[in-house]
């Protein structure tokens, strides 16, 4: 694994909020085509991890790498332009714009390229989205909005797709559906980095996982190994 360059990596990243030390010596590697999850409870540092990837929080020491390049100091826009796309928590669609316009905006940075393949892919994954193209995004149901949000992210042909708590705010049945879709997206070739509280769901589809506890990565292993890990079972997976 060390021969290939990870698409996204954290190298000894430490971050602070004033005097408070949040991320402690974080090392993460995500390779092309993988589905990796970041697990942890509240106040574990998951949020800060995402903010650091996107450039909202600069590391005090260490750096973030995209395709092996040190991106410290890069603006959010630069990072997005270089293939980092995120599906925010709570979808955050442009509710006043139509579904089609939302998808189009997802491809904003791909000037003049032919988007038909990408549209096809989105419609393939989310047939319901195709039906609702002309509707204002705010009129869709929660589950449908989630699909549009993911579709919008896919339109950018991201190098790595970040997902912020995809299970949050959805009914359990929809959660399972969601993760199934994320799985499909990954199998179709997109690298996915999921930050998630629901460890069961996340590990069921992931290749690997990192576990954050008070800012420190305490476990880093394949998904199967994590699921079998007794500490994990007790703390995060509930007694299965």
């Amino acid at each position: 694994m060390s021969d290939r360059t990870p698409v996204l990596a954290f190298r000894d990243v430490n971050t602070h909020y004033g005097a408070v030390h949040i991320l402690k010596d974080a090392n993460i590697e995500i390779y092309a085509g993988e589905m990796v999850c970041l697990l942890g409870g509240n106040a574990s540092g998951k949020t800060t991890t995402l903010k650091t990837i996107l450039g909202y929080v600069p590391p005090t020491t260490g750096h973030v790498e995209l395709d092996g390049e040190n991106v410290n100091g890069w603006s959010t826009a630069q990072r997005v332009a270089n293939g980092v796309t995120m599906v925010p928590e709570n979808r955050r669609l442009f509710k006043r714009m139509t579904v089609r316009e939302n998808l189009e905006i997802g491809a904003y940075l791909r000037h003049g390229e032919d988007l038909s393949e990408d549209y096809d892919r989105v419609f393939d994954l989310f047939p319901r989205v195709k039906e609702r193209l002309a509707q204002k995004a705010g009129t869709l149901s929660g589950g449908e909005q989630q699909m549009v949000a993911m579709g919008r992210a896919l339109m950018a042909r991201p190098k790595v797709l970040l997902m912020d708590e995809p299970s949050m705010g959805l009914a359990p049945k929809l959660v399972a559906q969601n993760f199934e879709i994320i799985d499909r997206i990954n199998k179709a070739g997109t690298t996915v980095f999921v930050v998630e509280q629901n460890a069961n769901m996340a590990l069921s589809i992931a290749d690997r996982g990192y576990v954050l506890q008070t800012g420190r990565i305490v476990l880093d292993d394949t998904a199967e190994a994590l699921m079998a890990n007794p500490q994990m079972r007790e703390a995060y997976l509930g007694d299965i």
Partner: peptide, 13 residues
């Protein structure tokens, strides 16, 4: 302020 849309479910560090 920046990136505040990436929220913690319960506001804390």
């Amino acid at each position: 302020k920046k990136g505040s849309f990436i929220e913690e479910p319960e506001a804390s560090v």
